[in-house]
């Protein structure tokens, strides 16, 4: 019994030593490269959601214009179109949630990368790596806000379509619903632009870091 305990102890030590060896084996720049690229690669699964969101938003815009155009005389003519358009609101929310989930999952790969940045020498692109990490962290934080704000936009969109659909609707109420929707949209748009800026900063700074660290790269891929 005692000898089996010893054997398990020896085995555990070997495993631990091997892992420590492996961990110490790669330089910080390689580990950071791995973290950044694993994050970007994880996000590539969200490419379809980004595209879906674009398509759905574009279709919504066209259908809204058609509803106003064909509903000028009577909204009876556009009841089906309004119902159809409303049904895609959930899909838009789901697509945004998918994007948020993928970015959140991807962020796990870089969440603890600061210690690796700290170990870098300035000549190894420490500053660029730090900037890339900051941009990615802010981008992650922005997508959390964006997803929450998008939910408010969808609520406002739904209220607007409900108004357009109602038999007793009036133009003053419609105008109020449009204002509310546009207010939410403005905030969503600002957050999207902020997210895009951080995306660009991350891509640019990580490329600069790879260059400074002497990591040869092949820009064949994009997550979108």
């Amino acid at each position: 019994m005692k000898s089996w305990k010893n054997k398990i102890g020896v085995l555990a030590m070997i495993v631990a030593m091997a892992m420590m060896l492996a961990a110490c084996g790669a330089p910080s720049s390689e580990k950071l490269f791995s973290s950044f690229e694993q994050a970007a690669s994880t996000e590539s699964a969200a490419a379809a959601a980004f595209e879906e969101l674009k398509q759905l938003e574009s279709r919504d815009q066209k259908q809204y214009d058609t509803i106003l155009d064909k509903g000028e005389r009577s909204n009876v003519n556009v009841q089906t179109l309004i119902t159809q358009t409303m049904s895609t609101l959930d899909q838009r929310q789901q697509a945004m949630t998918k994007v948020k989930d993928k970015v959140t999952a991807a962020y796990e790969h870089v969440a603890k990368a600061q210690s690796q940045v700290d170990k870098l020498e300035p000549a190894q692109g420490k500053e660029q790596a730090a900037q890339a990490l900051t941009a990615y962290t802010k981008r992650y934080e922005t997508v959390q806000q964006l997803a929450a704000q998008y939910e408010k936009l969808i609520t406002a969109e739904r209220a607007l379509y409900e108004q357009l659909k109602a038999e007793q609707t009036n133009l003053k109420q419609l105008q109020q619903a449009v204002r509310e929707r546009n207010q939410q949209w403005t905030q969503v748009n600002q957050l999207k632009q902020q997210f895009n800026q951080y995306s660009e900063q991350f891509n640019t700074n990580k490329d600069a870091f790879y260059k400074a660290a002497g990591i040869q790269t092949d820009k064949a891929n994009s997550s979108k």
């Binding site: 895009n196 995306s199 991350f202 790269t217 820009k219 994009s222 997550s223």
Partner: peptide, 11 residues
């Protein structure tokens, strides 16, 4: 090393 860029939203 193969590099992947992260995506941005279309507005």
């Amino acid at each position: 090393h193969v590099v992947t860029s992260v995506a941005a939203f279309d507005t």
